[in-house]
Amino acid sequence: MRNLQANHRNRKRFLCNPALLRVLWLLGIGIFALVIGVIGALLGFIGLLKQARSHFFDHLENQWETKCFVFQRLTVPHPCYSCNSTNCTTNICYDEKFKVSYKIYDDSEIISAINVRDTSNPQNIQIGNEYTCYYDRLFNYREVQWEHTLPKSQAPIIATGISLIIIATLILALFAVYVCWVERPRLKRSKRRNQMLRHLSGEH
C-alpha cells in the first residue's frame, strides 16, 4: 500500500514538474508551427501547379481549339425543379450526349463524347455537321467540350499557402528566440545551481 502511494506521489510530482511542462509546451508549439508550414507549402505547391497549367493554356495560341464532327446525338428530357422561399416549379431540362470525332494538334483523329447536362433547351447542334470544340491538350486528349471555360485563378490558394508559411516562420522564429534567450540561460542557471548543491553536499 505504501509503495502504491509512493508511486502515485512520484508520478504526480513528475507530471507537475514545471520543467517537463515547459518542454511539452515548447514541443507542442514547434509541432504546431511545422504542421502549419507543411499545410501552407502543400497549398502553395498545388496552387502554383494549377496556375502553371492555366498559364500554359493561355499561351497555346488556341491550339486546343478544333472542329468536332457530330455523328451521333442522344437527347433525354427529364423534370427539373426550381425552388424559392415560397414554392417550387417544375420545368423540363435536357441531358444530351454527342458522339464526335476531331483532330488534335498532331493531326491524329480522336473519337469521344461531349456530355451536356441539365440544360433548359436542347443544343442547336445537328448530326453530320462540324462545330468548334475544345479538347484538353495537356492531360487527356479525349476530354472535349463545346465551350472553352477559362480556368479559375489560383491566387487565393497560393496566398493562403504563403500566409500559412509566413505564420509558421514567425512562430518558429519566436520559438527560437525564446529558447535562446529564456530557456537556455535558465538551463545554465539550473545546471550551475545543481553543481553548487553537489559541491556543498560533497563538502559535508
Rank of each mutant, 00 (worst) to 15 (best):
R9N: 13
H78M: 11
D106E: 09
R184G: 01
L200K: 12
K188H: 11
I166R: 10
L43T: 10
P156L: 09
N17W: 06
I158S: 03
A41W: 09
Q154A: 02
I110C: 02
F139H: 11
V144H: 06
T149E: 13
Y178D: 14
I39N: 08
A168E: 08
R193P: 14
P122V: 09
C80Y: 00
K99G: 04
A6N: 14
C68R: 02
T86S: 13
D95N: 14
N7M: 15
H59L: 03
L164G: 02
H55K: 05
F175T: 03
I36E: 02
A52P: 07
I39P: 02
I162F: 09
I92F: 01
N10S: 15
I162C: 00
P18F: 05
Y178K: 10
C180A: 09
V177W: 08
L49K: 02
G28T: 10
I92Q: 10
I157D: 08
K188N: 08
I114K: 08
V100K: 02
G128I: 10
L24F: 07
H78F: 04
V182T: 12
L138A: 04
T119S: 15
L42V: 15
K50H: 14
H78E: 00
S101G: 12
L74Q: 12
E147V: 12
G37W: 08
